[in-house]
Nucleic acid binder design. Sequence first.
RNA 1: GCGAGAGUGGUGAAAUUGGUAGACACGCCAGAUUUAGGAUCUGGUACCUUCGGGUGUAAGGGUUCAAGUCCCUUCUCUCGCACCA
Length: 816
Amino acid sequence: MSKYPFKDIEKKWQSFWEKDRTFRVTEDPAIPPEKRKYVLDMFPYPSAAGLHVGHPEGYTATDIYCRFLRMNGYAVLHPMGFDSFGLPAENYAIQTGTHPRQTTEANINRFREQIKSFGFSYDWDREISTHEPDYYKWTQWIFLKLFERGLAYVAELPVWYCEALGTVLANEEVLTTPDGPRSERGNHPVERRPLRQWVLRITEYADRLLNDLEKLDWPESIKAMQRNWIGRSEGANVKFPLAGDGDAIEVFTTRPDTLFGATYMVLAPEHRLVKQVTTDKQRAEVEAYVEQARLKSDLERTDLAKDKSGVFTGAYAVNPVNNQQIPIWISDYILLSYGTGAIMAVPAHDTRDWEFAVAFDLPIVQVVEPPASAYVARDESGAPAEAFTGEGTAINSGEFNGLETAEFKRRITEWLEERGLGRKAVNYKLRDWIFSRQRYWGEPIPLVHCGDEIVPLPYDELPLRLPEVESYKPSGTGESPLAKVEEWVLTGCPDGSGAEGRRETNTMPQWAGSCWYYLRYLDPHNDTELAGRDKIDYWMPVDLYVGGAEHAVLHLLYARFWHKVLYDIGVVNTDEPFMRLVNQGMILGEDGMRMSKSRGNVVNPDDVVEAYGADTLRMFEMFLGPLEAEKAWTTGSISGVHRFLDRVWRLSDRGLQEGPAPDHIQRQLHKTIKKVTHDTSRLEFNTAIAQMMIYVNELYKEPVLHRSAWEPLVLMLSPYAPHLAEELWEKAGNAPSIAHRQWPQWDEALTRDEQVTVVVQVNGKVRARLELPTDTPEKELTSRAMGLKRIADFIDGKDIVKVITVPNKLVNIVVK
RNA sequence: GCGAGAGUGGUGAAAUUGGUAGACACGCCAGAUUUAGGAUCUGGUACCUUCGGGUGUAAGGGUUCAAGUCCCUUCUCUCGCACCA
């Protein structure tokens, strides 16, 4: 159905750009810093399935923006690469014996071809892949820096282990599903196992990761997710001595002001003191409960709907503020992994403790009087029927009675500190980042075990290359396939002692490579530094980062963490990498559901390019709706965009007339330039396209096409449909390329119409319209409005209360 | 439950600071062109109507000369987190 030869045009210009290296960018010192922009796409994992329609969405958006910036005199860094370590290639290797490198590189080639077929203006001289030794040399280098600074350590931890993937996973890679905890990748069941792991001390950066979010121009939802994930809460750690024992239970609480209401304590079943405190009488029952809790999946343990369960240990602790003995229970609603794994229970003011107290008939003591404005459900006797968790005034709290919650917290914390019973404390939900994987296809960790010592490889021995292996299968011993490569594992100890050492056989997770890739683009071939400082100073930080919201926590938090470490060691110039973040909305299938093979609603972008051309695909995806909104694919409306481009093409067949265009065309043109400029700069591509459509519709009604009305349109179109625009630019007699030509400017005076429609309202309802010259004085507006027969009919016999006029907009006559 | 966001024609969606609701596009209808179909061009297309007008932006209320836009209440949906002490 298409008439314009998009296939020829697109092929022609893609090879022109490639030969011409049109989009190569260098660090030109003549360009002032404010005219330099770093626009980054989240690079893809080169899967076997090829690109889906979601990839070109974000990539088109940044491409349009970059082309727009270039035409406005900016130096633009816009690179692309591949996140090429990862499990799918390795799983394929396990099944088929094909080396993951082979699969990965074939996929990269396919991806690169596809990406090029969309006409994106990347500087391909800067392409990187994270699996290449030249690249992972620097991933390893950063790891050694982390190790040096004590930010990487080994710990035996209960970690998520995935039998199907044969590896441990980070907390962030595990999802809670109705079928229990599952791996984010592949949706396989996972379970907790105590294993020896490399861990990165991201918690040391928790406060900075939290506070610096304020500086960032990111979607509020992403910031909220990161805040939530970090989960900072302030309170106090308090020691409750055991009755008749020298030991004490330490708890974390955010409400030290409710200490007087603590009527019992609860330990996590795995808590170290459980064995010690349990009385003989209770031992059998406690042990049974602990065993039962161990076998429960986390989902069962965290099912909110279930009733509270627990067992009394038989032991008592002493509430340090009033010396009362309170019973110690165990329950699985207390998690060993948060705080100290033990709580003081204040049933009157904590919903969970309330439920537990009611279930086991434990005492409930009110210590916070709710403010008069607060609603509290009460039973027939007038006693509270639920926990009051808000702030209020202290009661039943001895000398502290009458204090407001915030003040009480300060005072009681001081009181505890003076007596050595407690101290101010901050807790985070964020855990340290479990960093090792028992896999083959990842960066080797450049460390050697020499007896009990762990010795880093000297920097000049990097990269530590992945050895070739016989089998990609996990060893089954909880070690990676690397462990079986004896000649690689056995090595001299790098401390120079000449002793035998064994290499670390764990590899890094996929996140490692993507934590810093944006820096390598700056200087991709540098073999003495990860990137030259002059290049970093020239481009960083990233001005705009576009990608999917699925990386809200994982990638974006890890990358920020590494960046801060690099900042602390003086490698980078800012403490945040990505100043502005935009999430492109997901493109759903035509049925409004997430695209998936099983639903059969997957749209392959190659097919669209084949049928309509890359320019149509680009514009269609942008025309679908706002960039950030979730949008359903609608095959039908592709033709609307294609028809538009076809109309533009046929318009060019008319030949160009020199000399000025008619006045109304000039006005329409300048309005169009203004709107397209404004909208493009704000990534509001759908409305910019609509405006160009309006303008083309206008041009269509004209008998002749003027060069002065045409060329600005071609220029404005060029970021959106670059192939067609290049062709039209050449067809108009200009030398290629259009890519660096000056963006058209508008004349404000010409954006205004000579005539405007002014509506006349009576009591706010539109009753008439007036065609008047622009900027007709308000007085005349009023008199013209009053003079209308229709209006006279409406206001006849009524009192005019007032008349409101808005120049060039409306007259509203208020009558009674 | 908590956090974030969103509800506008048959459909995707527009709408500076409150100022003509539905731009643009899909679909549909009509006309032109065409052997026919497709394609193309032009026009129409929120709903109701006694053709005066009335009603419409999830629902209800409020502020205002004027509300999709601001305020309050409620409902629905999407996403994220979820016994985090």
